[in-house]
Write a protein that binds this DNA or RNA. Structure first.
Lengths: 339, 339
DNA sequence: CTGCGGGAGTGAACCGGTTCACTCCATCCA
DNA sequence: TGGATGGAGTGAACCGGTTCACTCCCGCAG
């Protein structure tokens, strides 16, 4: 039942006894008397009219397409991408999702191809925020970047993660439990200028009397298990592992199992991101969660809202919430003091 | 460096000394001499021209937007949605992702709103394939549905899952291990006409001498744990659980742990979909995997390729591959024969 | 030599909105 | 009373392609 032809602006204009121009203005509330506007809107509703997004795009120069670009390997970011696309749809925007798989080359290629696609916004989880190819993005394309303070692009509107808080809270928690040697497993990124979280963790650790040994790890469970095993087989085995990502933490669980270490008695494990499976593993993973919906909404409105409407700096920061479950414990364990 | 203005077709026409029309035809290889075509293409490449997708959309009536609609709650489908969007991008198509959360009402609402958005294709993981609102989708909109033979829409091009094979293989595997009573945990769907997999499993089980007790379960780990616990607390406890979805299997793991049953000695667990975490849990989950990339490619080409180019029936079927890990065992266990 | 078929190329309409520059007219103030 | 003001509404250009109907011209058959 495709039924009647799609209504055009001209149809509404005819029905209202107005010109196309007046009708267009009235429907968008830009000009014309209050009375006319409501009358025209009523007619449009009546006839089931809605403006053709394509024609509008051509005339107005805005395509209604937004690209979501980033390293979308891990489950958390995949979920974020889907939520972003959902939120964009609510604004009548369609999305182009591009996984750059952590590679600056792919990031560059994607950004270039986007220029041809006439996207009018890019939401990016940047791989190399300092790369020169960002300059190639047309000036009128809004860029919103999502990430921690150091991987987000300082030039663009940003949705930031308060990793300083997260890392500080994590180390404090472990220090309070008596841990003095902590291993930090951070995801491998090809270019990590300054290795922000790691450096931060080490200096924070120092101030708490905790030694932080940093090691990088792939985001996959398998790779993380290897990286964790290596860290745990060193001379001075850390009594706790802080994993920047739940998938890495899951890998650590496996490594611990293979080494015959029980969690949390012999080894405390701390995750990050509170994946759906954090409460599945045994013991349940202590981790940090985010308000993903709020992050998504912030990113979309940064893209959507007229310039300067948001915060002065164009930046919003989100703080992870600590979720204590069962994977961390006092060190040394109180149950076996000195036997 | 936004630099030079974007090139238009007129620029290329001028440079080639041809009319806009001839240039347009030549670039698309539709008319004009071979020599002219290559010459025009060379000029276009030279000037870095690429056609404006919006203008093209307006003129040609195809928007270049494809909607991905379905129940996108679980991780597997989320990953599929991201992969689909990726694959569409490679065809210069943008996507609109809509999660209908298993609700026919939302499915209907989304389909209606899509009409206004002028999508020219829909990839759907249908919730209610028999619903009448499908008729509202404009006839020229291509629909590709992804699902098993009974939840896919018979009217549209389909990418099918060979669940008959999957369920049969699973039951055979369990029967071979000596199991005679199997619990089947299937995801809850609001309208499940005929409850296909369940009915299938019961009749297949009959032919193998296996009793199959069906129970529906939410897709979330928590909900599944509850459903599994209930199934395991019944009078005749099944010795194996076949879970239609890895998340449900993870819930079953937890239920087993809480009931003091060890896997696989006391209880065999079989999953479905081979999520990234199937090999993380302990024991590693025996499950069924898909070639997701092939499924995605099939769906996209069904949408993209001209009508009738694919298989005669417009349907492709994919078969899951059995991945045996450590969560199933012989029943009763051989280690403790009769002690 | 005439007539015809067909490939190459062209001008103009068209897709369906947005926006600019303009006219018209009622109102208000000097 | 006359001129400035400004809100309501209009015609036409415009965005950048696609496609239709047409002309022109060359080659070939009758």
């Amino acid at each position: 039942m495709t039924g009647a032809q799609r209504k055009t602006l001209q149809d509404i204009a005819d029905a209202a006894g107005l010109s196309k121009a007046a009708t267009s203005y009235a429907l968008r509330g830009l000009r014309g008397s209050e009375a006319t506007q409501t009358r025209v809107r009523a007619i449009a509703d009546d006839l089931g009219y809605s403006a053709d997004p394509i024609a509008r795009a051509l005339a107005s120069g805005r395509s209604g397409n937004v690209a979501i670009v980033g390293s979308l390997r891990d489950l958390w970011r995949q979920g974020l991408a889907v939520m972003l696309s959902e939120a964009l749809r609510a604004q009548e925007l369609s999305s182009i999702i591009a996984d750059v798989d952590g590679s600056p080359q792919r990031e560059e290629a994607v950004l270039r191809s986007l220029a041809a696609q006439r996207v009018d916004g890019v939401i990016v989880l940047p791989v190399d925020p300092s790369a020169s190819y960002w300059a190639e993005v047309p000036a009128q394309t809004r860029i919103v970047s999502i990430g921690d303070a150091l991987t987000a692009r300082p030039e663009s509107e940003s949705v930031l993660f308060d990793n300083e808080y997260g890392v500080g809270t994590a180390l404090q928690h472990l220090a309070d439990l008596g841990h003095r040697s902590v291993g930090l497993l951070a995801p491998t990124l090809p270019t990590t200028p300054g290795r922000p979280a790691e450096v931060l963790a080490q200096s924070l650790g120092d101030s708490m009397g905790v030694t932080v040994t940093v090691s990088s790890s792939p985001s996959s469970v398998h790779g993380a298990a290897l990286a964790a095993a290596q860290l745990l087989s060193g001379a001075e085995r850390p009594t706790a592992l802080f994993c920047l990502g739940d998938s890495i933490a899951f890998g650590a669980y496996r490594a611990a199992r293979e080494l015959g270490l029980s969690v949390p008695e012999d080894l405390s494990i701390l995750g990050f991101d509170d994946s759906e499976l954090a409460s599945l593993v045994s013991p349940e993973l202590t981790t940090f969660g985010w308000d993903e919906q709020a992050i998504v909404d912030a990113a979309v409105s940064a893209l959507t809202l007229p310039e300067g409407t948001g915060t002065a700096s164009g930046q919003v920061m989100f703080r992870p919430v600590f979720i204590e479950r069962g994977s961390t414990a006092r060190q040394p364990p109180p149950s076996v003091p000195n036997h």
